Computed example of a mutant assay.
Amino acid sequence: MAKRKTGDKLGDIRAATIAEVVVSGSSAASVNAIAKRAGLAVGTIYRYYDSKDQLLRATYMAIKGEIHQSMIDAADNVTDSKAKVQSMWFANLHFAHKEPKSFLFAELIVNDTILTLEDREKIAQMAHDIRTVIETAISDGVIRDITLDSIMTVLSAPVMQLGRATALSGEAPDPARSAEIFSLCWRAIEA
């Protein structure tokens, strides 16, 4: 394949990495296949990344950061605690619809052993940001005073399931069904 000399090489590499992992899985995805998919020489990828693991890590961390930022931005746009939690929940679902391959990529990599201690610390900080919103809702008397892990499970499992279904179907989630599922989650944790 001919090498391109212009364009957004990092964007092309990212898009190709996501597409290859979603189709082949992280273990089977190779730098050669990613390079071919991106229309670049293998050496071009190695100019930016030392290894396949570093490429996968960087792509995962970028996506994880985007999902997190969309949730935090959504929470920052409302004032009351319930609205913050609800906004974050729907932001996650919106990301799955807007960026289905990225959402699926993050799902595939989340349990991978390629993440470094530094990556895990960044992810822990993101989780802390989300937990802070929930702790505030507990303090405000909006959410029951139960363990944060229980609350996180009740909120995250359904939205991840819904997000996965949305990403795989390519169709926008049904608003009424999404609202109904959030309502069920909310009733389980509300004060």
Rank of each mutant, 00 (worst) to 15 (best):
A16Q: 05
K9S: 06
Y49I: 06
F182I: 06
A2H: 04
D8R: 12
T79F: 03
L155T: 05
S70F: 01
A83Y: 04
A176R: 09
Q54H: 10
S24K: 13
A83N: 11
A106S: 15
F103L: 06
I72H: 11
E107W: 00
T132M: 09
I109C: 01
E20Y: 00
Q69Y: 05
I63F: 07
R14I: 00
P175I: 11
I67A: 03
I34D: 02
D140Q: 11
A127P: 00
L115E: 02
D119T: 10
E118M: 04
A33L: 09
L93C: 04
V142K: 14
G11I: 11
G39N: 06
D140S: 15
L40R: 05
I34V: 13
K84P: 08
V23S: 13
R47H: 15
F105A: 04
D149P: 00
A83V: 06
A58K: 14
I114L: 14
L117N: 10
D8T: 07
M126G: 04
A172F: 07
Q86T: 03
K5G: 14
S169W: 06
S102E: 14
I13K: 00
G65H: 11
F95H: 11
S102T: 02
V21H: 04
D112L: 02
S156E: 11
V159T: 12
E66H: 08
V78L: 08
T153F: 14
Q161L: 14
A191P: 12
W186S: 10
A2N: 09
E99R: 15
D50C: 02
V42P: 04
V23E: 15
K98I: 03
S169C: 11
E118W: 00
A29L: 03
A29Q: 04
E190P: 08
R47W: 10
I130P: 00
K9R: 14
F103K: 03
I151G: 11
T116C: 03
R4V: 13
A41L: 08
K52R: 12
I134Y: 01
V31K: 01
D53Q: 13
C185P: 00
I34K: 05
I34N: 00
T166S: 12
R187D: 15
F103M: 09
M88V: 09
E180Q: 13
I138Q: 15
A28N: 14
A179R: 12
S102K: 15
G163W: 02
N92A: 14
M71K: 13
I63C: 08
T113R: 12
D73P: 01
T116M: 08
S30G: 09
I63P: 08
E20D: 08
D76N: 15
Y48G: 08
P175A: 13
L40P: 04
A191M: 06
S102V: 01
M88G: 05
S150D: 15
Q54D: 13
D76H: 14
L10C: 01
M152S: 15
A33I: 03
L55K: 10
D112N: 13
Y60S: 10
I34R: 01
D140E: 15
L55H: 08
E118C: 00
A29P: 06
R4S: 07
L168T: 07
K98Q: 14
K9D: 10
V22C: 05
D140C: 10
R187V: 07
D129Y: 01
K5N: 11
T6A: 06
C185A: 15
K82E: 12
S139C: 02
V42Y: 10
G170H: 06
D73R: 15
E66M: 03
